[in-house]
């Protein structure tokens, strides 16, 4: 069954004809060309596909695109909307060496955003819990935790 749907991604409207059984991850990557969001396990375990829907982090691999009509979707591309100035979370990830191969990064950053929007001053255990659904096989997580701490500080200063 095909549906003509309009998705609001990073503030832009996209109208796509998509089959009911396509995931948001497939439509973002294949139809909209927004390949910043990755596909890892496809089972909701690894977090590489994390995006925000109406402000909450979700696994885009387990979300049907048709179910997202009328909702605000934010992907990693929406972090640095202008394409020039990076988001404080992205700056911090670079600064602290929290990126190695980069495959988990988009998902990690979206989980960090989900956390910092709701809890601007997280403790280390809160950061660890917040990224417990994002697997990184390179960094050992310490640099990522440092980066999220640092991003929290910068974001508070900017406000």
């Amino acid at each position: 069954m095909k549906h003509l749907i309009t998705l609001k991604v990073n503030g832009d409207d996209y109208t796509v004809a998509c089959d009911s059984s396509r995931t948001l991850n497939e439509v973002l990557r294949e139809d909209l060309g927004l390949t910043g969001t990755k596909l890892g396990c496809g089972d909701g375990d690894c977090g590489a596909c994390t995006v925000l829907i109406d402000g909450d982090s979700v696994s885009s691999c387990l979300t049907l695109a048709v179910s997202c009509e009328g909702k605000e979707i934010t992907t990693v591309e929406g972090l640095a909307k202008s394409g020039e100035e990076l988001h404080p979370i992205q700056e911090a990830f670079i600064e602290k060496g929290a990126i190695q191969c980069g495959f988990c990064t988009a998902g990690m950053e979206m989980s960090a955003l989900n956390l910092l929007k709701k809890n601007p001053s997280p403790t280390e255990p809160e950061i660890r819990t917040a990224i417990s659904g994002n697997l990184c096989r390179c960094t050992g997580y310490y640099k990522i935790i440092e980066a999220i701490h640092s991003a929290a500080e910068t974001m508070k200063e900017k406000q």
């Binding site: 977090g47 982090s57 979700v58 696994s59 387990l62 979300t63 989980s111 819990t129 417990s132 659904g133």
Partner: peptide, 9 residues
């Protein structure tokens, strides 16, 4: 139960 993303869904 599960992780943050799954609990949000």
């Amino acid at each position: 139960t599960a992780n943050v993303q799954i609990r949000n869904m």
